[in-house]
Simulated scan of single mutants.
Amino acid sequence: MNDLDLDNLLGAEDDEGPRRRSRGSRSARTRSRRRQRRQRRKGFVAFFIAIVVIVGVLGVGGYYGYNWIRGVAIPKDYTGQGSGEVIVEIKDGQSATEIAQTLVEQGVVASERAFINAVGAAGKSASLQPGEYKLRKGMAAASAVPLLDPKRRLQTTLTVREGLRLSQIFQQLSTATGKPVRDFERAAKDAEALDLPSYAKKRLEGFAFPATYEVSPKSSPEDLLAAMVARYKKAAEDVGLVDGARRVGHTPLEVLTIASIVEAESGSKRDMPKIARVIYNRLQRTPPMLLQMDSTVMYGLNKFGVSATHADLRSKSRYNTYARPGLPPGPITNPGEDAIKATLKPADGPWLFFVTTDTKRGITKFTDSQTEHDKFVEEFNRNQAAG
């Protein structure tokens, strides 16, 4: 091979070399572009997934955020008037929020906020008064608010008048509360629970003070009777019963027993001090006179009336003051403050007898003469016969 041929050969190789490098360069660029496209696709997919995730997070957060805001702005509430019956007690000094808590706990309203909003909308926040109210379960808050009007309170005002026996008071309390009389009879035997004075000798008669009381279906017999005893103790303290009893020479129980007879026998408040004086005069005689009070005889027989019969006067009861000297064993009524005051400060006078000659008009006549007393009795009989 000559030099020319060799050069041609080498030149051919030199010419081929660049062409090969050119094809290799194009392949590299193609691969690079493919990698870039793949990377762009991956980037787009990642971006898309990120967007989906972000949207999802925002969507879930927005849902719960909406519900949270809605729960604050539009609190959970029932609809309609509810059903059944619930007795709700509002205690003295409770705020609207505390009342709302009670209503939620008892299933009346769905949420505290719903009730508070309803109270505010009705302008009733200042009119929520302590007491017991009848509502229903599952009520719309706006329907519950009107049922808490003080005029709808279940408490009833019960006035126990002076001179009633315990058996009569039990009947009144039973009617007011719907509880049976036997529950009050049972409660009356628990002197410790009622906090009776020691001188009461564990008997409630005479210590159930006549006054006006708030009574509701939820009031227990024990609570009601204890309230009456507490009211008695306050009245006894006000009039100075214990010290006053010492001044008139009797025990507190004896004074209350005399006051109960004064209450039963008097036709009017003005006669009470005179009737008390008659009782003291009879007890202070030497020897003491029998009291001879029809009211005590009737009490011992569990009868009612203003005049005992001859058969009644033969009673063996310890309350028969026609047969037994001195005072009966305890009070025969529950006297009021006027009768207690009259017993502690009796009128001055020599009277040994009194007769209510006209029961309709409450006219009572007093005397220290047996003869005049008998005339008064005849007058009483004529008035009774005339009706």
Score class of each variant (00 low, 15 high):
Gly11Trp: 08
Ile69Gly: 08
Ser22Gln: 13
Asn2Phe: 09
Val72Arg: 15
Lys179Asn: 12
Val355Cys: 01
Ser167Glu: 07
Tyr78Asn: 09
Ala276Pro: 15
Ser25Glu: 07
Arg277His: 01
Glu192Arg: 10
Asp238Glu: 09
Arg136Pro: 08
Thr157Ser: 15
Met293His: 03
Asn2Gln: 02
Gly349Tyr: 01
Val53His: 03
Ser27Gln: 15
Gly362Phe: 04
Glu98Cys: 04
Arg38Ser: 00
Glu205Met: 04
Glu192Tyr: 03
Gly43Glu: 14
Asn8Leu: 14
Ala276Cys: 12
Ser127Thr: 13
Asp5Gly: 15
Lys233Gln: 10
Arg282Ala: 00
Ala347Cys: 06
Val278Ser: 04
Lys202Leu: 06
Thr175Ile: 13
Val145His: 09
Ala142Pro: 03
Ala73Cys: 13
Val109Leu: 07
Ala386Glu: 12
Glu16Tyr: 13
Arg246Gln: 09
Thr367Phe: 05
Ala126Tyr: 03
Tyr63Asp: 04
Thr257Ile: 05
Glu265Gly: 06
Ala385Gln: 07
Ser315Ile: 00
Gln370Tyr: 15
Ala347Leu: 03
Ser295Met: 04
Glu265Trp: 00
Val72Ile: 15
Ala276His: 14
Ser315Lys: 01
Leu158Phe: 12
Lys151His: 10
Ile169Ser: 03
Val72Asp: 14
Leu173Asp: 04
Pro210Gln: 08
Lys189His: 07
Gly56Glu: 01
Leu58Asp: 03
Met298Glu: 11
Arg21Ile: 14
Gly62Arg: 07
Leu327Thr: 08
Ile74Asn: 10
Tyr319Pro: 00
Met293Gly: 01
Phe170Ser: 00
Met293Phe: 05
Ser174Thr: 02
Leu241Met: 03
His310Asp: 15
Val45Asn: 09
Pro335Ser: 06
Gly120Lys: 14
Ala142Leu: 14
Leu166Ile: 10
Lys201Gly: 10
Glu337His: 10
Ala311Cys: 06
Ser83Gly: 05
Gly305Ala: 05
Phe209Leu: 02
Ala235Thr: 08
Gly305Trp: 04
Met272Thr: 11
Glu16Met: 14
Ser369Pro: 02
Gly17Glu: 14
Leu253Thr: 02
Gln106Lys: 09
Thr257Gly: 06
Arg182Val: 13
Arg70Trp: 12
Pro329Trp: 09
Leu224Phe: 09
Ser111Leu: 06
Val248Ser: 13
Thr102Gln: 13
Ile49Glu: 08
Ile99Pro: 02
Gly56Thr: 01
Leu327Asp: 08
Lys375Arg: 10
Gly387Leu: 00
Asn302Lys: 10
Ala230Gly: 07
Ala121Val: 11
Pro150Asn: 01
Ser127Tyr: 08
Gln101Phe: 09
Asp294Met: 01
Ala142Cys: 13
Arg203Tyr: 12
Asn67Leu: 11
Ile87Arg: 04
Lys42Asp: 14
Met289His: 08
Asp348Phe: 12
Phe354Ile: 06
Ala114Gln: 07
Arg186Gln: 15
Thr296Lys: 03
Pro287Glu: 04
Lys345Cys: 11
Gln168Asn: 03
Pro252Val: 10
Tyr322Cys: 08
Pro328Val: 08
Arg270Cys: 12
Ile261Val: 02
Thr343Glu: 06
Arg21Ala: 14
Thr212Val: 02
Glu378Tyr: 01
Ile116Tyr: 05
Lys341Gln: 07
Arg31Lys: 12
Lys202Gly: 07
Arg285Leu: 11
